[in-house]
């Protein structure tokens, strides 16, 4: 099974280290750093390379400090195209 590959960038100067993102992360990718930002907060860093790009951390972040990236899996191929009256639907499966 192809793995979803995600990543995040945390704006550490906006981060206040509230740790709500750590709580929201099912992958346990995040941890509080030992360094402080200019405001003196221990900011959050990503410590694991297992991010799925689910955006949960960004959703609960009160500071809007997290940008989330997710890599589209190239190994998927199109197997069919279904057309109905409202929109086109593309169905893909993993190779």
């Amino acid at each position: 099974m192809a793995k979803v590959k995600g990543d995040i960038i945390i704006d550490i100067e906006k981060c206040k280290g509230c740790e709500l993102c750590i709580e929201a992360c099912s992958q346990k990718s995040l941890e509080t750093s030992r360094q402080v930002n200019q405001k003196g907060y221990l900011y959050i860093v990503k410590i694991e390379d297992n991010c799925t790009g689910c955006t949960n951390c960004a959703l609960v972040c009160p500071e809007g400090a997290i940008t989330v990236y997710r890599k589209t899996d190239k190994s998927k191929k199109q197997v069919a195209k279904i057309t109905n009256i409202t929109k086109d639907t593309t169905v893909t499966v993993n190779e």
């Binding site: 590959k5 990236y69 589209t72």
Partner: peptide
């Protein structure tokens, strides 16, 4: 993978 193309939340 942090490219504009891959950005899913900002």
């Amino acid at each position: 993978i942090c490219t504009t193309d891959n950005k899913v939340y900002e």
